[in-house]
């Protein structure tokens, strides 16, 4: 089963007005490893046209990318006011 399909079974309360994680595209531009794309279990970091594309909407808030990125590009905060991932089982 593809990761996109797996993410499709999840429920999110997406905060359209606040991205709880942001990256610095200038830092990512010259990144030698792009480890975020391997580490993130929710496929939020992908490479499109040799640029990093980040989708906060699919994030399951595990916290991995904050330390996976060793170049200081990731700014990580918790979603606000009950937004974000909402599991049924956990």
């Amino acid at each position: 089963m593809e990761i996109e399909e797996k993410l499709g079974v999840l429920n999110y309360k997406t905060d359209k007005s606040y991205a709880h994680i942001t990256i610095d595209p200038v830092i990512c531009e010259t990144c030698p490893d792009r480890f975020c794309t391997f580490a993130c279990p929710a496929h939020c970091y992908t490479v499109i046209d040799n640029k990093i594309n980040f989708k906060y909407e699919d994030c399951v808030e595990c916290g991995t990318c904050f330390f996976a990125c060793s170049h200081g590009s990731v700014k990580w905060t918790n979603p606000k006011g009950g937004h974000g991932i909402k599991y049924k089982y956990g």
């Binding site: 079974v9 999840l10 399951v60 595990c62 991995t64 956990g90």
Partner: peptide, 9 residues
């Protein structure tokens, strides 16, 4: 049937 996918540290 896959009911949930999750990740956590």
């Amino acid at each position: 049937r896959l009911e949930e996918y999750s990740a956590h540290l």
